[in-house]
């Protein structure tokens, strides 16, 4: 079980969190023209990198904040955790 450092609450066990996918995906702006291709890429296509991955987790049984976690998908090493509004 992973040990994730919530930037708001501190180190907590994985079972307090839920996974939220790739944190680098940006939702296209509202009311802006977007091609079918670009929209499909946003909705469906995700990379599945082997190694470093910036991902979203929500501290669902804690402060309920969405946070960013930089994690190695192979070793599970966590390099860094960030608040939602912070960049790597």
């Amino acid at each position: 079980m992973l040990h994730i450092k919530c930037p708001h609450c501190g180190l907590r066990s994985q079972n307090e969190f839920s996974y939220g996918g790739d944190a680098t995906v940006k939702r296209p702006e509202l009311n802006k023209e977007i091609s079918d291709q670009d929209w499909d890429n946003f909705v469906y296509l995700r990379k599945s990198p082997r190694g470093k991955h910036l991902e979203l987790w929500q501290h669902i049984s804690g402060c309920r904040q969405w946070i960013k976690v930089e994690r190695d998908t192979l070793t599970h090493e966590i390099f860094k955790t960030l608040k939602a509004n912070e960049e790597v």
Binding site: L56, Q58, R64, Q65, W66, A84
Partner: peptide, 12 residues
């Protein structure tokens, strides 16, 4: 969670 996602990450 869905609402929190949009408020915290997409439209802060």
């Amino acid at each position: 969670s869905h609402l929190e996602y949009y408020l915290q990450l997409v439209w802060p």
